[in-house]
């Protein structure tokens, strides 16, 4: 069941600058969907429009098929977890969490019970009487999460909630958010610029760029089959070849090089791409023309920790980036690259 839909949402500033163009998507009940994109892509604006903090130029937002465009933010029964926590500095942890319940006119005993429940769920019981400034960043964000969950929101909005935390905390809080969201069956929309974060936490991913949606799909599909060049670049594809399709329909020509793909496709294709870690790097100078193989010379080598990044200059496909655990190749070495046909991805735009 679709809990929330966004239909033909557009937004432009008074100076004419368009920040959102025809955004359409929906979030199903109990689902966590993340919006992934670089800064300035419009993901936060989309979130703020859904929350009612900003006004769209056209299009609408609906909850359970009912348009909520005329409902002010404080009556939408949504909650939001902000990047900078946005806790009320003058209230204790308990009072912060209780704030929303108080606004809903809930009785004191009921509030105490409900807040205690949520605080124990988020492991904040011991901090109930502390003021926000006495807490660490991770604790503050947990309070913010508790405050957002306590009101049982129709939609939980998370605006880069983990960006201000260090890596270890980010991972553990990410899992906690996912655990609580699933346990409480809350519908959530999660905005982030971090690909790993978005893949790890969400049921579906919306990739945005330049104010429009590039792809909506599960994390696995986005990872394996990026729909556009932008998505491919954003999730780690680094080698792109402009191609024209040959008649056999799985053979492509880039300059004078023939490339073959494992699967056939009927859609128009302008470009093939491949991740650096999927290219095979050999020293053997086989001259027999194996499929998707080409010769090159190593022109740069960087140690990345787990792997080495080699930049290989080829005759016809330009510079190709290859990640390999092999440390033996040196600058100037002649090498042979193989682009496995099942790892090549075709892009229509």
């Amino acid at each position: 069941m679709q809990a929330m839909q966004v239909k033909h949402l557009s937004m432009s500033y008074e100076n004419g600058k368009e920040v959102l163009t025809d955004i359409n998507f929906s979030v199903n009940a109990g689902e966590l969907v993340s919006i992934l994109g670089p800064s300035g892509c419009g993901k936060t604006t989309t979130l703020r429009i859904i929350a009612g903090l900003q006004r769209q130029t056209s299009g609408n937002v609906a909850i359970d098929e009912q348009s909520i465009d005329s409902v002010p933010a404080f009556k939408r029964n949504m909650s939001m977890v902000f990047q900078n926590y946005a806790l009320f500095p003058h209230l204790s942890v308990f009072e912060n969490v209780a704030f929303g319940l108080k606004q809903r006119g809930i009785g004191k005993t009921a509030i105490r019970k409900r807040v205690a429940e949520i605080l124990s769920l988020t492991e904040l019981t011991d901090l109930a009487n502390h003021r926000p400034h006495a807490l660490s960043g991770g604790q503050q964000q947990r309070v913010s999460l508790a405050r957002a969950l306590v009101v049982n929101p129709t939609l939980l909005l998370l605006d880069e909630p983990l960006s201000n935390l260090d890596r270890a905390l980010r991972l553990s809080l990410r899992e906690e958010i996912r655990r609580l969201q699933q346990k409480l069956g809350i519908t959530a929309l999660f905005v982030t610029h971090d690909q790993e974060e978005s893949f790890a936490i969400s049921d579906r991913v919306i990739v945005m760029n330049g104010g429009h949606i590039e792809q909506i799909a599960s994390a696995q599909i986005v990872y394996a089959h990026p729909a556009t060049t932008f998505v491919a670049k954003f999730i780690g594809f680094e080698n792109f070849f402009n191609v024209t399709r040959q008649e056999t329909s799985n053979e492509y020509l880039s300059g004078e090089t023939h490339l073959y793909m494992a699967e056939k496709t009927t859609k128009p294709v302008v470009r093939l791409c491949i991740r650096p870690e999927n290219i095979r790097l050999d020293t053997s100078m086989d001259t027999d023309t194996q499929q998707n193989s080409l010769n090159g010379i190593i022109c740069d080598k960087t140690y990345l920790g787990r792997t080495y990044r080699y930049v290989v200059a080829t005759d016809h496909l330009g510079q190709i980036k290859v990640d390999s655990e092999e440390a033996t190749h040196q600058l100037g070495d002649a090498v042979r690259l193989t682009l496995p046909s099942d790892k090549l991805i075709a892009l229509a735009e």
């Binding site: 949504m78 939001m80 902000f82 900078n84 946005a86 929303g100 606004q103 405050r147």
Partner: peptide, 19 residues
Amino acid sequence: FDQTIEEASWLSGASKIKT
């Protein structure tokens, strides 16, 4: 004064005047 604190209050159900 961080404006998102006010936004958090609006979303918690407090009107602008109450906030």
